[in-house]
Design a protein around this nucleic acid. Structure first.
Lengths: 227, 227
DNA sequence: GTCTATACGATGATAGAC
DNA sequence: GTCTATCATCGTATAGAC
């Protein structure tokens, strides 16, 4: 009887088109969550498949390997995010270019930072992703880093170009290092969005994301523009 | 013959005092090197004991566990470093206090940053340690982080106090966040001291440490003092 | 094509005999 | 101190059910 009901709903005429439609997404979600929380290496495929409520072999079937799963987790959100960041940057360059002006450093940084930190809003789908990228940025020579940089290169080149426009008096060398410093800060706050050691009790770590963005832009812009 | 010579030098009258005098140090050095290069989790005890040319069980014998080895690796260099940093900070506070002045933000930051980055000099003993700490700072909720923060707390409190003195117009909240940003930058450059992706070829990554310190202080001070 | 159960070989950290 | 045994857990591979 139960088998009949099950068959009716899940093995009906549309079965060949829809079987277990969300298995891949469930694995991606669990992987994103656990990689972000515990790091790539300490996370086992078994913990991922348990959380996703799928069979252990499903990861290998759908993604090929643990490493390829990580790649898929990164790509799923990084591609759309970079589209947004690049779109805002090009729009800024277009607008200021038509007016015969250079963009301000703050506006250039904003096109990168604002879409990134907005993903971090508590309870959103992409909350974990931000922490994961923060971790990846802190692992030199890792596979994750290679995957990430591969997707970032076009945007980074364009960002560097725009920053050079906004800060024409800086040498290429100095500009590079300051971008490096600013990215260090950003990756740091991408990771630390919950209370932990080093954060005094009277400091509001759950600051509204809009306030945090301005606070960070104050710091980063001043650092970039230092004489 | 060789055995006799060996016995004479290594198994002589002082043997009961000096047996295998450098086993612990060799393990500490190998652990520091591999933890810094590959990260804590991907590094196996076998790879450490192989590099140190000691038996696999020696780690457990001398340190108790892999985790306790990490703790020993951290403590060996962090304690002397913090002594230096705290000493310089107290000297600065003493000097400015006697003159009835507040220390400058740049001078306060310098007491922290300069001894840290000087450890990073290529070829020095403590080169790996800096990269290791950079990695640890990027792992929220890790054991390593707990160990590290335990040793940092007194110095951090004092540093925060000195920074508040140097920037009296900032709210506690803003000051905290800016310190957070600056530490993010610092941990980032602690990790990245070799050429890798994201670094253009015409940028000199092997900048003399004195220049890097000033470059970083320019950025961090401007960011901290932003209006 | 999708999913499950199970097995494999490698490697992890540790404990106990010597 | 060393050597070896042990046992858990890892990522991956495969055979077969649906």
């Amino acid at each position: 009887m139960y088998d009949f009901v099950r068959s009716f709903f899940f093995y009906g005429s549309r079965n060949h088109l829809m079987s277990q439609p969300d298995t891949k997404q469930r694995i991606l979600n669990a992987g994103e969550h656990l990689f972000a929380r515990d790091g790539y290496h300490p996370t086992s495929l078994r913990s991922i498949t348990t959380e996703a409520k799928v069979n252990l072999a499903a990861v290998n079937y759908h993604f090929g390997s643990k490493e390829s799963l990580l790649e898929a987790v990164i790509e799923r959100r990084l591609e759309p995010l970079n589209k947004i960041r690049l779109g805002q940057l090009e729009a800024l360059l277009e607008k200021t270019g038509q007016a015969g002006e250079s963009p301000t450093c703050r506006d250039v940084l904003r096109t990168f930072i604002e879409p990134t930190l907005r993903m971090r809003i508590h309870g959103s789908d992409s909350e974990d992703f931000v922490a994961l990228i923060g971790r990846i940025l802190a692992e030199p020579r890792s596979v994750a880093m290679k995957i990430f940089m591969h997707h970032m290169e076009p945007l980074m080149n364009r960002l560097f170009y725009a920053l050079a426009l906004s800060l024409p008096e800086l040498s290429r060398q100095t500009l590079f290092w300051r971008v490096h410093f600013a990215f260090g800060s950003l990756s740091h706050i991408m990771r630390y969005h919950e209370r932990q050691a080093m954060i005094p009790e009277d400091v509001n770590i759950d600051m509204p994301v809009d306030d945090l963005i301005e606070l960070f832009l104050d710091f980063a812009t001043a650092g970039m523009e230092a004489s």
